[in-house]
Amino acid sequence: MSQRSKVKTMGRKIDYKQVLKNNGILIVFFLICIGLSFLSPYFFTMNNIMNIIRQTSIYGIIAVGMTFVILTGGIDLSVGSILGLAGMICAGLMKNNETGIFVASAVAILVGGGIGLLNGLLITFGKIAPFVVTLGMVTIARGLTLIYSNGYPISGFSSEFRQLGGGYIVGIPIPVIIFVVTVAIAWFILNHTRLGRYTYAIGGNEETVKLSGISVKFYKTMVYVIVGIASGLSALILTSRLNSAEAIAGQGYELDVIAAVVIGGTSLSGGRGSIIGTLIGALLIGVINNGMNLLGISPYFQQVVKGALIIGAVILDRLRDETN
């Protein structure tokens, strides 16, 4: 009897530790939020919180798509360039060709998905490493943006289009709503569709999936299409919010995007991770950016902190792996 109760309490204790370890990032996130609330009275205001989520949504949406890619064990470095190209084409269509908002937006998303498709096909049928293909695509897409725009920004859109990045629905910024919906759809796909389960399985063991009679090439291509579409969607919000499409828009975004996914606990070698993790990862980066701005920390120093955060998150992940 006494032995049994002993075993029981031991079991409970381990569970408790496990909870701590499995939710390490969430706990860090809350601790930072609490800390910042004390340090800056402005931090914990509705206005600021909405502001953080709105800023987060731009790369957060791409991070949602990137989660799929990284879950398969791949990587997409070209998301920033895809964003630049999609935004520029959308702007150009509206300003130069007087195309309607919806058509222009749809084209932007198609451009994003199309480049993702190209990435995916080169990776699966061309058998080239994702790193190489998308590294090449970084400059290809950026080059196309410069060709299309001659290097000049395209600015000044209709007030309807500007709603997309600056508007509100029942007091919530529209980008935030789009972000939340994207997260919800991605969660559903990952947990309740073949595409989602195969995404995890391919990252876990591609060989097994292939031998199980599943077209690995198709599903692997799809994840690049997804991140392309997400980049196109993000391009619309950014272009609308800035009321201008710049040829260099989105440059360097891949770093924040990948950081959000990795901080959220998705393994770079694939097979393990979650969309909720990515959401927290993205918000954590947003909160830290915002907090450091509020505290007047130099932007140079901010970069150091962000880098340290990425490494710290991976160490945390490693610790969890070793103890499990």
Partner: peptide, 30 residues
């Protein structure tokens, strides 16, 4: 190396070959 996805659950592994039979437009019948 070829039969299992070690990092996935018993459920996910056992179901891997039949997801196409038990889904409609890609949505699984859990």
């Amino acid at each position: 190396q070829q039969g299992l996805v070690l990092g996935m659950s018993v459920f996910d592994n056992a179901a891997l070959s039949v997801l196409d039979l038990y889904s409609t437009f890609g949505v699984l019948h859990r």
